[in-house]
Design a protein around this nucleic acid. Structure first.
Lengths: 229, 229
DNA sequence: CGACGGCTTGATCCGAGTCAATCCTGGTGG
DNA sequence: CCACCAGGATTGACTCGGATCAAGCCGTCG
């Protein structure tokens, strides 16, 4: 069970470029959201919205990170994706959410009325196109992830995950993972033990370095890439 | 390896309601496609488009069925979805396809220039909304399938698959599967042997009846539903 | 008829799950 | 400052479900 949200609304106006990737480009949805939305701070592991709840809002991560999940009745969980600073999530066609979203760590999220965006899209073809583009991009990501879940073994899954995480970060060889081993496991369709074992195995192979459990260095990118060949 | 396409263009004009679900509603994309497109007949297992090819067209299944796939370098395959009569597929944001599509059995497919649809959407807000809606619906389906691939065991996967197939068909208790065991296996992230074994197991449990390998009757829907609880 | 492709069945193996015991690491209070 | 604690992560021993390898089976078509 999750704690109740700590809905500390941050009232200070947003500085020009408060965080990387949250540029105020009013010609894009992600940019113009800044002008229409409210900032809300969610504490670690707090639910932002639940499956089946009315999909009234659209969300953009300002800082921290967020996971989207689906739950099975027996408690098993599939994390369908992680959302980092600058990314939009919670976009639904339907009137109701088909998955839930939770803060991975303390996160500031911008919240905008869905009806406002959809209304804009009805009048502005460019906004409509962006709405479609965001959804299509998400679809691509999820389809890529199906290949991981359907075809790969544990080592390949973890390697693919680490490679993709560095690409989404600075692109360097070091990653600071915001999520726990359990989150990773539920994302990759593995158990926490297997994720842990596989990480140490990759370390023994000299493919990665575990500076701490959340801090990882890629030592041999080629070896990692070779795994999903 | 796949055979070369048998590109028999069917030139006879489409009758009013040639097939279920292909209604000629010119106010919808799927409907108005009929007016703009060309019909092409693909023989079983022929590739309709390949990963990496330019995404010049949008497709709608008239008859038969189609699978979307992603391939791993070592030949393993993930079927990301099946498309039945009336459904639109091959929709891409990008200029290039990120997955391939093949005819599951002999299929007639309506082909329309992507640029024509995207152009329409730029002027007509309703068309734009439908473009988004189709993509969003596909996203929902793929996300649902992630739960299958990430969380379920073989019995649950096959049961879920059979239940969903009947819903997409007439909704009755009988299904005529258009696809082979190999297709099902690659869709569910299992091997052909496991799919086969699981089917006979479900038959022994009196949950289904195997009238022939492609023809299946659901005898105990409740038992099947209980599996993904 | 024979051959072929798709499906089923059987025997065995192995990778990842399960259960359980530590091992950090960071935070709290004495 | 250190002792203690709690939650997350790692490691180990064992099990088991599904993959693999290898025959057979069955329906279709030449």
């Amino acid at each position: 069970m999750l704690m109740r949200p700590a809905t500390t609304t941050v009232t200070t106006p947003s500085p020009r470029r408060p965080f990387p990737n949250s540029g105020l480009d009013v010609n894009t949805i992600a940019g113009s959201m800044e002008l229409m939305g409210t900032r809300i701070c969610y504490a670690r592991n707090v639910e932002i919205f639940g499956e089946g709840e009315p999909a009234e809002y659209l969300y953009k991560v300002i800082s921290g990170s967020v996971r989207s999940c689906k739950l099975l009745d027996d408690g098993r969980r599939q994390v369908t994706g992680f959302h980092m600073a600058g990314e939009v999530f919670g976009l639904e066609l339907d009137e109701e959410h088909h998955f839930s979203a939770e803060a991975v760590n303390d996160a500031i999220v911008l919240v905008v009325k869905r009806s406002a965006i959809v209304g804009l899209a009805a009048r502005d073809a460019d906004i409509a196109r962006q709405l479609w583009a965001m959804t299509a991009r998400e679809l691509q990501r999820v389809q890529d992830h199906m290949l991981v879940l359907g075809c790969m073994n544990a080592k390949q899954r973890v390697a693919t995950f680490l490679l993709r995480m560095t690409l989404r970060g600075s692109g360097g060889n070091e990653i600071e993972l915001p999520m726990s081993r359990q989150d990773i496991a539920d994302y990759l369709g593995l158990t926490i033990e297997t994720v842990s074992r596989t990480m140490t195995q990759l370390e023994n192979d000299a493919a990665i370095g575990l500076e701490s459990s959340r801090r990882i260095v890629l030592r041999n990118r080629a070896a990692l890439t070779r795994l999903n060949a």
